[in-house]
Amino acid sequence: MRRPAAPSWGWVAPAIILLVLVSSSLAQVPAGAAAGGEAADGRSPEQWLQIVQQAARRLDYAGTMVYQQGSEVRMSKIVHVFDGKVSHERLQPMDGRPREFIRRADEVKCLIPEARRVVVERRGRAEAFPALGAAATAELLRHYSVKIVGRERVGGFDCQVLEIQPLQPDRYGYRLWVDRATGLMLRTQTLNGRGDVLEQMAFADVRIGGVDHEQLKPSWSTEGWKVDETAHRPIDLREQGWRLLPPAGFKPLFAVRRPMASGQALQAVYSDGLASLSVFIEPASASSADDALPQRGPINAYARRVGDAVVTVVGEVPADTARAVAQAAERVGR
């Protein structure tokens, strides 16, 4: 029954390769795909936005995230778990000094092992409120258009590609690749008016569901470490004698007094649901002058002297927008 070996080897290797390819692609199909994946067609772009937002908050996933900005590439391990009430996240940057960021709802603990120090950042809101929430979507569409531009495979997942374009050139556009089965965003790009990619994030690998909660635990025991909390107190800008004019659709999120390197500063934060900008107001020094700070990917900053203060606008907005907000800042009588 022995067959001659030589001719059979010709197809064995390709067959093995084919088998490996087929089995590995099968292994990457998410659990939910077979069950409800087909119902995905017929969803409006707006519905997709809401699915993305829900998925980002409620899905358990773990993977490696690659972030690129210009010539810089950074990789991080990320674990995300939703406990039924709030989301938990652990981020481990793989480059630079060892750091870990452990988030629970709106509180982020930043672990600095070489200093045996934990910095606790707290936004002061029950849950970091969803950027793409249902009510926010309608508001969003007053300043952006959203459309489905295609269907692509990313990291082995069948993805819907969405494009969010600003109606005015005073903000950026975005392209999203969303897993059709689960709604998890697997790749995101921020685009300027010319269509250049200013920054992008993509999962190099990700497992959706079945995440061991143990993976949320930090690498180091922080027992005995020094704990610092960022302190900011709410203020009323008007009472402080300032009037700011953010771009249309940017709503105030916070106005606080906080410590900065220069001493105490006022910080006002605005968001249109997708992009945010902060306005810092600090006492001016002798050398303070109007100038644009170097651009970092989508981040622009512009500083302007107003009387005895320096107003610095920082945010994920085009340079012209940052400058316009700085130039519109004014002292009001008090």
Binding site: I78, R103, A131, L176, E199, M201, H232, V256, S271, S276
Partner: peptide, 10 residues
Amino acid sequence: LAEPGVMPHS
């Protein structure tokens, strides 16, 4: 204090 926006919070 900013909104996470389109990009994931992290």
